[in-house]
Design a protein around this nucleic acid. Structure first.
Length: 213
DNA sequence: GCCGTCACGGTTGAA
DNA sequence: CATTCAACCGTGACG
């Protein structure tokens, strides 16, 4: 034992081609989701997954109060790189939401397709693409521009039309999903018991928040 | 000590 | 239905 009890092993940046050892993470926490970890600050995170919404909110809110990123990082136990990233994005986009994870890029439409969509929009005065519009356009293109059949995706058509669902709907759905997830996560379980993984050790200069529940 | 940036392993979901 | 792959994630180290 050369290190103090409870000391966090340093994770060195690996040489090119070298992988991080899985045990490089100081502590693994078993959760119903199976992959909770504890970072150097003692915060719990799920590798590869976005931070929970309430933490993201908290980061932005604290920054609004003029609290410095390094303090936010320590109090919320989130790495400063992450705090920096979230605040940067918030400044750029005004949104605290994580980007869309997964999926493929929409396939590119061609000028012909663009033209057809514009015509369609003008003649029908439709400005969002529902199932009917998508199917109609696909049928049109198959007849008139057969080679495009495979290139047409719902996503590419939708992107040209604008979203069929409005932002509020998406936001609401996402929130519901989040609630479902957190209810079954370790954080959710602890919070049901009145504990939070993001509570601070006694004596810490706490940032007061009452809206956690 | 603070902060921006980067490489990394991991997750996700459309194609 | 299974696989592929490019997007994103947060962490932790470097400068």
């Amino acid at each position: 034992m050369t290190s103090l009890a409870g000391a966090v092993p340093r994770m060195m940046r690996p040489a090119p081609g070298q992988n991080y050892p899985r045990t490089g993470f100081p502590l693994e926490v078993s959760t119903p989701l199976g992959q909770g970890r504890v970072n150097q600050l003692g915060g719990v995170f799920i590798n590869g997954r976005p931070l929970p919404n309430h933490i993201r909110h908290k980061i932005v809110e604290m920054a609004h109060h003029g609290i410095r990123p390094c303090v936010i990082s320590r109090q919320l136990r989130v790495s400063h790189g992450c705090v920096s990233k979230i605040l940067c994005r918030y400044q750029e986009t005004g949104s605290i939401r994580p980007g869309a994870i997964g999926g493929s890029k929409p396939k590119v439409t061609t000028p012909d397709v663009e033209k057809k969509i514009e015509e369609f929009k003008q003649t029908t005065r439709v400005c969002s693409a529902g199932k009917f519009e998508i199917n109609y356009l696909r049928t049109e293109f198959v007849i008139e521009i057969p080679f495009l059949q495979s290139a047409l995706s719902v996503a590419s058509l939708r992107s040209k039309f604008g979203k069929g669902e409005d932002e509020d709907d998406l936001e609401r759905k996402e929130q519901e999903e989040q609630e479902k997830r957190t209810k079954h996560s370790i954080d959710g379980i602890l919070r049901e018991r009145g504990t939070s993984l993001y509570t601070f050790p006694a004596g810490t200069d706490l940032y007061i928040h009452n809206d956690v529940h």
